[in-house]
């Protein structure tokens, strides 16, 4: 209940900040009214689009109190969706004005004779938002390197918000009132704070929390496990299932950080090592990760995430993983074995082939150490394979789970098709939704 209350409070704050410019403008109206109702709708859409865009920075600022309620992957998805929604509002703003006879050539062509400072800043902001959303949706199709995209994403976001702010101030109709000046001032200060915190203060704080790679070993399924050791500090403990952002380079200001699940067991002693298992998906995971060698420096921002077997207690656990999505589940199983937990654990592990199964030998050993049953599901099974084939489904779960399965806790991590299938299968099996935790690993 407390969680719902806290979640509601965060939502109310979010909604308040989106509607703040609109509410202030409605309460303290400007001296000169706009020529029509449609123009005011356009203005309102513009204000909402701006607020949504500005708050996008906050959604991905890794505020732990908010992430603890919603989950980092849900916040990331919400950030992605609201980015597209903001684009809709921002595009609708000039479109309505053009319908209301505003000269399109002045607003959409910064080189036309009638272009002014207000039209140019609006055009720049609009172009930045369009590029921002397009490069995010089609990053892979455009073959943009993740690190390049990350830099461009930050810069375009900044250009979009600053362009919009300049546009609002140059237009002046809603900045002439002191109340509105305070609102825009607050927005500017919060934005600057978030950017300075994330890009400057956080890396400086991380400087003293250096990590060193002590091992880089090859795993099955075209994956690698990197083991990190804290240098000059005690490292961190984590709940099994959590993840950290990995940054490899000479300084914490290095561009490019990657959210990776921790694959080693929890309950780490101070100064203990932490391991991450990374699948080769090209880019960083196919180039930088295989090249990493013992002694290389790294910075870990973590632990993050609410996806953990420690957060939900049940009479047993059902872990459902696909591909490299098994890594947080493997961490959970190892932690339970380490703690001598005797509760039953069922691991449904979907992979392409027998050779793609990461931690195959380790899982076999683990089955002897704890009450664990692993059910491998191969989508491209070899001849003679007697286990499950195809994909994890409602029928397959039914075949293997014990009678009391509705009292178990379900933890699912994997690619979108698996997650979508399970979000339908588990309710159909009568598993209460509050006993299901999910994490999509392709969150960025």
């Amino acid at each position: 209940m407390r969680l719902i209350l806290r979640g509601t409070l965060w939502f109310v704050l979010y909604l308040f900040l989106i509607l703040l410019p609109l509410a202030t403008a409605a309460l303290f109206q400007p001296a000169r009214l706009s020529p029509s109702m449609l123009t005011e709708v356009a203005v309102a859409l513009g204000f909402i689009g701006f607020s949504l865009m500005a708050l996008e920075f906050a959604l991905i600022s890794r505020v732990k109190t908010a992430a603890a309620i919603f989950g980092d992957d849900a916040l990331q998805l919400f950030h992605n969706l609201m980015g597209a929604v903001a684009l809709g509002f921002i595009v609708a703003h000039p479109m309505l004005l053009v319908v209301r006879d505003y000269p399109a050539q002045c607003w959409l062509n910064p080189f036309s004779d009638c272009a002014s400072r207000s039209t140019i800043t609006a055009f720049v902001a609009l172009l930045a938002v369009l590029l921002l959303v397009a490069t995010s949706i089609w990053r892979k199709q455009l073959r943009l390197k993740y690190e390049i995209w990350q830099i461009a994403h930050g810069l375009l976001a900044l250009v979009a918000v600053l362009g919009a702010l300049f546009h609002i101030f140059i237009m002046g109709r809603y900045t002439s009132m002191p109340q509105m000046q305070v609102v825009w001032g607050v927005y500017s200060v919060v934005l600057i704070y978030l950017i300075v915190w994330n890009r400057l203060i956080k890396p400086i704080l991380h400087w003293r929390r250096q990590w060193e790679i002590v091992e880089n070993r090859v795993e099955r399924g075209d994956s690698r496990t990197l083991v990190f050791k804290p240098v000059g500090h005690s490292g961190f403990d984590f709940e099994p299932g959590q993840f950290a952002w990995i940054k490899m380079g000479r300084s914490p200001f290095t561009v490019g950080q990657h959210p990776i699940s921790i694959s080693s067991p929890g309950d780490v002693e101070p100064g203990g090592t932490v391991a991450f298992t990374i699948k080769n998906l090209g880019d960083w995971s196919g180039g930088r990760v295989p090249a990493a060698k013992p002694g290389d420096r790294a910075w870990l921002d973590g632990p993050h995430g609410v996806f953990s077997s420690d957060r939900e207690q049940g009479m047993g656990y059902v872990l459902i993983g696909g591909g490299v999505g098994v890594t947080p589940l493997y961490s959970m199983a190892q932690t339970m074995a380490q703690r001598g937990d005797v509760r039953p654990v069922y691991l449904f592990y979907g992979a392409k082939t027998w050779d793609d199964i990461i931690f195959r030998e380790e899982l076999e050993t683990l089955q002897g150490r704890m009450n664990l049953k692993v059910i491998y599901v191969l989508s491209q099974a070899h001849e003679g394979w007697e286990g499950e084939t195809g994909f994890v489904s409602e029928e397959l779960l039914k075949r293997h789970l014990p009678k009391q399965y509705k009292r178990f806790v379900y933890l699912i991590c994997g690619p979108d098709p698996l997650m979508d299938a399970m979000e339908k299968a588990l309710p159909a099996l009568g598993v209460p939704p509050d006993q299901v935790q999910t994490e999509r690993f392709a969150m960025v």
Binding site: L15, I18, L19, L22, A25, A26, Q29, L33, S34, M37, L38, E40, V41, V43, A44, L45, I48, L52, F70, G71, D73, A74, L77, F78, L81, M82, V85, G88, F89, M419, E423, P433, V436, T438, R440
Partner: peptide, 30 residues
Amino acid sequence: MHHVLVKRFSVALSTLLVIAAFAFALLVRG
């Protein structure tokens, strides 16, 4: 949190914001 919920929530919020934009115009234009 279920992703279907996040998507539904985003759609509901967007609808609410469109309504807010029209409400604003009505308020301002009296």
